[in-house]
Design a protein around this nucleic acid. Structure first.
Length: 651
RNA sequence: GGCGGCGUAGCUCAGUUGGUCAGAGCACGCGGUUCAUACCCGCGGAGUCGGGGGUUCGAAGCCCUCCGCCGCCA
């Protein structure tokens, strides 16, 4: 039996999960489910990355211990995965003992063989943050990205370093001789360019914070993210703990992730493994970014989609059960966007797919055929007679499509795989119409009517098996309607072979699985899709300039506290403000420099539009807008009456 | 600035090595049909294949150049 080990990244628990995390995890889940369907022995891993100074800080801000904080957020991730029907076999947390032991063992081993050595890490350091920042993150004039205006200092810190440079040659050779080791092409080229440009040794320990795994032989240090986080993949595969398991599952077949972290996985990780004498993963696959109306998702910009809320909205608008709406989201993400490319997410597009693909093509095939079985064959699937008409063509389409799916999944071409399955559904609908079993029944040709119904339902059955990785709930419902005794979960790819449907099966037609979502009004983003771009209201109209309460509610107004203010270079009317909105900090650019001096503003509570589309003004990205009254050329900032914490909503 | 990815019908995208390659689905229009969640089937319009040069008997695909979007690096 072939094995298949697939991972998502372990997600950093500095914040609650969002649709970006869900996208990666859903993709991995579909691949894992498909491989199980194909009969492989699958290990599907996800988890959370829980160490580091940022976790310590966010925990402190919330007045809880780091452990309490990570417990809470890790639970949120697990809850979401359950809601999204994710079938992970394991969920690893870097704070678990099993993982700490592996991280320490790898560190120790690399140290003992000289691949990790004591040196120093140098970089731009912000004393307020107690953190180093790369050049690229520094503000203008070498200032801290968190503490605006605070200049960073070039500082050296004692640190253990990993001899990444030593493995440059080997790594380049490895990637070049293993074309699919990094995919798709864009990320692969970037990694190659990076490796060719030369690799420097990297710091793998820190002394500036303690929330981490201690370096076993030097308690002043904790193991930094490279070795701490990446080793989770071998921990969960049983490294050290369960040699038999490790031998079975390692190396990983696919490390799936967003393209922003591919370099760590494709450069540092294989080097560490190779140095430690452990086989390297077969493939690091980077998918693209999700955008909303062309904008990158970003918590700080207020462009956030909560997958659970969205699923509930779809369920409410359609009448489908929530788990089926979850299926629709799973389907949409992998059907609409070619995996590996960036793609745009929008609720109207999701509704479009829901109606056109799931309701019309898939759901309706059952809804038009099962009642005829009920009506003319006492609810029992008739036995097929001799092939005629389009029978053979349908059978062949189903067979070739069923065979075509697996190789596409191997390439993580989910979109192509779904198109294959849709060949069956389209052929089934067309066949049903052409062969018109209701007419045959009317004419008394019951054998023919029965044959057509059998063939149609057989196509539906095969499609249902093939779709089960994407639509675990909906296909289970379809399976129930088909009345097949063996549970869907017991089915294998081999069962998706023509002729597997048993005549005499008692069908159980039910309510439509995917009730169409009728476009009463253009569906604007609801609570789950907080975005600047959701508005679809028509200009004008009978209400003139009136807006509905719902339209008003789209504007996310918040109380914000001004942390810092300074003039924008080259503009005499603009000020750049750093404001705190609840737990986050943002930059705003406001045209109030002629009315307010920077010093007047610091500490004030103002009102801001928190979900406005960000915009660059004079080279500075403004992530919102403050509210002010204006009269002639006087401008007066809006504030709050009394002491209200920043982040409080305004309505 | 260097490197890389992308730019094909209103939308989402296919288009191996240049020769029915100008396509699919959705959306749209027309017609038919009616088993079904007013759905299905058929037909149809539309694109100077980002612009401009070039190579070739022939280019969406190769070369040069320019434009735009994105990413990585500096």
């Amino acid at each position: 039996m072939a094995k298949y080990y697939i991972t998502t990244p372990i997600y950093y628990v500095n914040d609650v999960p969002h649709i970006g995390h869900a996208y990666t995890t859903i993709a991995a889940d579909v691949a894992a489910r498909f491989k199980r369907l194909a009969g492989d022995d699958v290990l599907f891993l996800t988890g959370t990355d829980e160490h580091g100074i940022n976790i310590a800080r966010v925990a402190e801000r919330h007045g809880v211990s780091p452990q309490a904080w990570t417990d809470r957020i890790a639970a949120e991730f697990q809850r979401l995965w359950k809601f999204l029907n994710i079938s992970n076999d394991d969920f690893i947390r870097t704070t678990e003992g099993r993982h700490q032991r592996v991280a320490q063992a790898v560190f120790q081993r690399l140290y003992e063989q000289g691949d990790v050595y004591l040196g120093s890490y140098e970089g731009w350091y912000c004393p307020s943050c107690e953190s180093f920042y790369p050049d690229s993150e520094l503000g203008p004039g070498r200032t801290c990205p968190v503490h605006t205006g605070r200049t960073v200092e070039w500082t050296a810190e004692e640190s253990y370093l990993f001899r990444l440079s030593k493995y440059q040659r080997w790594l380049l050779d490895h990637i070049e001789t293993h074309p699919s080791s990094v995919a798709p092409e864009g990320p692969r080229n970037e990694v190659l360019a990076l490796v060719r440009s030369g690799l420097r040794d990297i710091a793998v320990s820190r002394t500036t914070f303690s929330w981490g795994v201690p370096v076993p032989f030097d308690r002043r240090h904790v193991i930094y993210v490279w070795i701490d986080a990446l080793t989770n993949y071998i921990t969960a595969a049983g490294y050290l703990d369960d040699p038999e398991k490790f031998a079975r599952y390692w190396p990983a077949d696919v490390h799936l992730m967003g393209k922003e972290i591919v370099r760590f996985h494709a450069v540092i990780w294989p080097a560490i493994l190779h140095a430690a004498g452990i086989a390297v993963p077969r493939q690091t696959f980077a998918h693209g970014w999700l955008t909303f109306g062309g904008q990158r998702f970003s918590k700080s910009l207020g462009i956030v989609i909560d997958p659970a809320g969205l699923s509930r909205e779809i369920a409410a608008e359609s009448g489908a059960e929530v788990a089926v709406a979850v299926d629709a989201l799973r389907y949409f993400l992998l059907r609409e966007i070619p995996f590996g490319s960036d793609g745009d997410f929008s609720k109207p597009a999701l509704i479009q797919r829901f109606n056109a693909d799931l309701a019309n093509d898939y759901g309706n095939l059952l809804n038009r055929s099962l009642p005829l079985v009920e009506r003319h064959f006492q609810g029992r699937i008739p036995a097929p007679g001799p092939e005629e008409g389009g029978d053979a063509a349908l059978r062949e389409t189903a067979a070739s499509a069923a065979e075509g799916v697996a190789p596409l999944i191997d390439r993580l071409d989910f979109r192509g795989a779904l198109e294959e399955v849709w060949r069956i559904l389209n052929a089934g609908n067309k066949y049903f119409d052409a062969e018109a079993p209701w007419r045959a029944a009317q004419a008394g040709r019951m054998d023919r009517a029965g044959t057509v119904l059998y063939n149609t339902l057989e196509a539906a059955r095969i499609a249902t098996i093939l779709l089960s990785p994407w639509l675990p709930t909906a296909t289970a419902r379809a399976w129930e309607q088909l009345g097949i005794a063996a549970p869907l979960g017991s089915q294998r790819l081999a069962d998706a072979r023509w002729g597997g449907l048993a005549a005499g099966t008692r069908v159980r037609p039910g309510r439509p699985i995917f009730p169409r979502i009728e476009a009463r009004r253009p569906a604007a983003g609801g609570a789950a899709t907080r975005t600047s771009d959701a508005g679809v209201s028509e200009a004008g109209g009978p209400g003139m300039n009136q807006i509905t309460i719902d339209e008003f509610k789209k504007i996310d107004l918040r109380v914000a506290e001004v942390l810092e203010a300074k003039p924008v270079a080259g503009a005499d009317k603009l000020l750049e403000l750093r404001v705190r909105i609840g737990g986050e900090t943002r930059t705003l650019v406001a045209g109030i420099a002629q009315q307010y001096a920077p010093a007047q503003l610091v500490g004030r509570k103002i009102i801001v539009v928190a979900n406005l589309q960000p915009r660059r003004v004079r080279g500075v990205e403004s992530q919102g807008m403050l509210l002010a009254a204006s009269h002639d050329d006087r401008i007066a900032l809006l504030g709050v009456d009394g002491d209200v914490p920043s982040g409080a909503p305004v309505s």
